[in-house]
């Protein structure tokens, strides 16, 4: 643990990072919080929003504030997996020619995969191993990625032409899917004020990579009562239409629900939230607050759900209302 961590509490550390981000990013408070929680939880974030809402700025600012190495990959249909992971090249050396692995942009702590849905599935899948196992295998040789490793992918929900929707296996690897909302008029005014002046806002580095790793370690130590674990498990089961916990009112709108990875994600994110609130234990509130962000991209709507215009968020809300926390305690 660094000196900084010893001196500051997790609440202060996360709070300072949030404040620093807030100097550049106007509004989007929930988005900022959830991005930070995902970072503390050691997960990856899928940002969905129309262009121009500050997604790239957010990631760049985060890199600035944490001192993490940052790379941006603009996903296009002709992008190849090697363009992301790196490739083996023949290089002239003093001793002669030899093959050397040249690292791709993924070998950074903060990776912005911009418009990830524009790349082909083959390229998208290049991220799978990196996101889950924090390593890349090229030419039969595994290469460890730097820690912390944090992927922020963005996708545009409007322009669907020429896009390749992310496969379920890919989306499941994102801890949360966050929607970037359009700024309110007053927020927009503030954005204009900050970005069109002579001096754009500057940020300071408030956390180091070690601090973030410490925060991630502390988050895993947050205590979770068994009833809460059971509740998380029942929530995940309730997202499956065949489950007895699934509310009848939404069962027909769901094609299939969250994987166990969803439960893990909810618990990890909840712990991070508890840590950010200065608690040593997980609270019911943490679970309920973060359920939408975790399940949003893990609940796949049925045809009936699509035609009815039901959103996954609405389904999660119903599930949270119907599934009782006290049920198993009687």
């Amino acid at each position: 643990m660094t000196t900084q961590t010893e001196n500051r509490s997790p609440v202060d550390m996360i709070g300072s990072l949030r404040d620093e981000l807030g100097r550049v990013i106007v509004g989007q408070k929930d988005l900022l919080d959830e991005v930070l929680l995902a970072l503390v939880a050691g997960g990856h974030v899928l940002l969905e929003g129309v262009p121009g809402l500050g997604k790239t700025v957010l990631v760049k600012t985060l890199a600035d504030c944490t001192g993490l190495s940052f790379s941006r990959v603009q996903f296009t249909p002709d992008l190849m997996p090697a363009d992301i992971t790196g490739s083996i090249i023949l290089e002239e050396t003093e001793t002669g020619r030899e093959f050397r692995f040249r690292r791709g942009p993924i070998f950074h702590s903060l990776v912005l995969a911009d418009e990830i849905n524009r790349a082909t599935p083959k390229t998208q899948s290049a991220l799978l191993e990196a996101m889950q196992e924090f390593q890349v295998t090229v030419g039969g040789e595994g290469h460890q990625l730097p820690r912390p490793f944090f992927v922020l992918a963005t996708q545009n929900p409007i322009e669907m032409e020429g896009t390749y929707p992310l496969p379920e296996a890919q989306t499941d690897r994102f801890l949360v899917k966050l929607s970037v909302e359009r700024p309110q008029p007053e927020e927009l005014s503030e954005i204009l004020r900050r970005t069109t002046g002579l001096k754009p806002p500057e940020t300071e580095r408030v956390l180091s990579a070690e601090d973030i790793l410490d925060l991630q370690r502390l988050a895993t130590q947050v205590l979770v009562a068994d009833p809460l674990l059971d509740y998380v498990a029942r929530l995940v089961c309730a997202t499956h239409p065949g489950s007895e916990d699934c509310p009848q009112s939404v069962a027909s709108f769901i094609r299939y629900g969250s994987s166990p990875r969803g439960a893990q994600a909810l618990l990890k994110l909840g712990k991070a939230r508890a840590l950010s609130k200065g608690r040593d234990h997980l609270a019911l509130e943490d679970v309920k607050t973060l359920a939408k962000a975790v399940f949003r991209h893990r609940i796949h709507l049925s045809f009936e759900g699509e035609t009815e215009g039901v959103t996954p968020d609405a389904i999660v809300e119903t599930i949270l209302e119907e599934v009782s926390f006290e049920k198993d305690m009687d």
Partner: peptide, 23 residues
């Protein structure tokens, strides 16, 4: 555990007593 949860609700302690009792 249910009694502990009720105490938490009463104390607004966000499942602190429940987690303690569970522990």
């Amino acid at each position: 555990r249910k009694a502990a949860y009720r105490l938490d609700q009463l104390l607004d302690s966000q499942e602190r007593v429940l987690t303690s009792v569970d522990w």
